[in-house]
Nucleic acid binder design. Structure first.
Lengths: 222, 222
DNA sequence: TAGATTGTTAATCGATTAACAATC
DNA sequence: TAGATTGTTAATCGATTAACAATC
């Protein structure tokens, strides 16, 4: 999979930051900025130039000594490393407020992700169209995953059924789950999870505010 | 603010994990489990017993040697450390899909957060009631923040106006921003941010799947 | 009692920061 | 050319893991 030998050296914190550098670069490109230095990137991100260079160092194509980084080249290089060019099919499981917000708000197509299905258990929602996709009954999900090669599931069902749902997804071949429920999912080792409990993010922010002077850390990312 | 001297030693990674241990503990309590060991917590969380103990070690009240941790006591202790007993007022800025999902889905009240206002610029939404709160016009936000002592703003406006909006929030006294936009916010040092770009989480998940065998890391949290 | 498991210190590992030669 | 800034190695810092005595 990693087409570049150095790719295997990307650490978890670096991978996380790369996804966010990419957003910054895209914003710069929109503003027609063609060159950026590690110093400028660090200022935008909220880290140090040294860390930026250390992160970018692992990419295949990077910058020019003395000149900085070309925003376009760098963005392309980050995309290549993150694998956004490797198309991945994805479904949203649970079409409540959260599922809908994700469908409407996340620009999947710009990052190699194909949202190809929305699923729910509620008969009142099934058949409804969300972002050009019909909401399908949850009973069809298993077959759909196999037939359409679904790699990723975004999980926004009630917390109580989250594990049960996950087991089914995994049994049918899903390789990654983005978990928006408050359940702590048990998964086999070959399936990846990213947990996104919004309440935890708010709690953390509250803690940071309370401890502003003691800890002082302005956190960078989610 | 930290009422316990040891509280100041809570590191950022530990604080993050504490918010998630709390969810696990609450789930255990719902199931009437009264005692849990570091080994069990680690298994649920996906880390090591050693790390769990190292994290909990900083709390004021913890466990009993040889016996494990009381779920109730531990949860209370984590809450105290995270400051969920210190009430904080919060507003949601931007009442599109994301703002609505947050209002509907996040159990603020259980974690010391009072959602007291919803704001939007769109006249078609203003006046609408979401989760028992009327959507107010964005013009009223500044005064509202000062008058009601709003500490936290959840930001789900269009990316293009995010910085501008943030500047206003901060000028009026907001101390923490949960940023759901794709903008990289510039903030004064005394204001905290937590960035929650959903697309980054999906991209990261994609990377993890591609590199499953090489990196093998099943990520723990958001 | 013996077994289990915490609290806590020490050792290791990994990530960040510093430094600087290369070079545009 | 001189100044700026990368690429990369080395040094430092901090976080995780290991270890084990204390004790329920």
């Amino acid at each position: 999979m990693p087409n570049n030998p150095k790719t295997r050296d990307i650490t978890t914190p670096t991978a996380r930051r790369l996804t966010e550098y990419l957003l910054i670069l895209e914003e710069l490109m929109e503003r027609s900025v063609t060159v950026v230095s590690s110093k400028e990137l660090a200022e935008a991100f909220g880290n140090t130039p040294s860390q930026v260079r250390q992160d970018l160092f692992r990419l295949s194509e990077t910058g020019r000594v003395g000149q900085g980084y070309s925003t376009g080249t760098l963005a392309r290089s980050i995309r290549e490393t993150l694998g956004t060019h490797i198309a991945k099919n994805l479904v949203i499981v649970g079409c409540g407020m959260v599922g809908r917000a994700i469908a409407a708000h996340v620009p999947f197509d710009r990052y190699g992700l194909n949202l190809i299905g929305m699923f729910d258990i509620n008969p009142n929602i099934i058949g409804e169209t969300i972002e050009n996709l019909p909401v399908s009954p949850i009973e069809d999900l298993g077959d759909f995953i196999e037939r359409r090669d679904v790699l990723i599931a975004s999980l926004s069902v009630p917390t109580l059924v989250a594990q049960e749902m996950t087991d089914k997804l995994v049994a049918r071949g899903v390789r990654g789950v983005l978990n928006f429920t408050r359940a702590r999912l048990k998964l086999p080792a070959n399936v990846s999870v990213v947990n996104s409990q919004m309440i935890c993010q708010f709690t953390r922010l509250g803690f940071m505010i309370d401890h502003f002077d003691t800890v002082g850390h302005k956190e960078k990312s989610e």
